[in-house]
Amino acid sequence: MHDCEYYQELMSRLLDESLSDEEEADLREHMRTCRDCRRLGAAFTGMTAVLREDLAEPPRDLARGVMERIRDEESSAPRRRETGPKGRLRPWIRLGAAACLVLAVAGMATVTLRGRAKSAQTESADAALTDTAVAQARSAGAEPDGGEPMTASINGGAVYDLRDAASGAAESAEAPAEDAAPDEAAEAPDPAPSPAQEPLPVYDAARTRIGVIPPENIPAFEALITDGGWAEGTFEYMLKVEYNGKSYAFADSEDGTLVWWEEPSTQPLLSPGTFPQLRQLITMDAPALPQ
């Protein structure tokens, strides 16, 4: 015997057509005898009909406004993609590349960068992952097996020379963009127009901005990154950060911000107060970023 709460959740799922035949029969039997659940069911049905059917027409000037803003943007800063495969960078590529530099120069790590075909072209990313290119970081005196391997899956970049990447990071924090074709990705990266000079906003999982990483702190943050890769089935690019023997995760969001990653169904892996070094790196009371 289930309680009403159980049946009320079934009602909600019935609206979403995610009930089994048995569950539906069970629910209907319960509804027959339970007035409260019938009333709630009627409320669910009524308000859901409003939400599903009562759609507004978008204003006519919505699209026009978007296109005008895009034209303004294009006239001042055209999209760079047509100039080559190395377009705008995700912050994590910059972070990853710079982290490579830090570790390579320190001679502490073997750095493995796995090429991954562009998923739009190759849906079987697993197969692409076997096409792994290993670039070992050997700056003068570096022992490749001297530390924990650092792995970064970069979407689209196959062969990826770490020293180029590292020097690119040193000069410009630039690295091959995710859309780079495999044979093009080995080229030395283009310099980018000072991408690392912007503060990096950090949000919590509810998209509340908890602060920014000021430009001068980004290298120190980068030094903590040990891994990165696409989280399966999400839009998230995950960054693994290690500190004091514990691992923490950040998610890169699609608008170039960082999100403290909250593991599903668990407590947040970290809150600003639990990670002193990161907390110092993230300015908690920074003024709002200009839009």
């Binding site: 978007v66 705008r88 739009a120 849906e123 995710e178 608008d255 170039g256």
Partner: peptide, 10 residues
Amino acid sequence: YRSLDRFRGD
């Protein structure tokens, strides 16, 4: 639009 190159199509 600005982030369009991040849309991976999956």
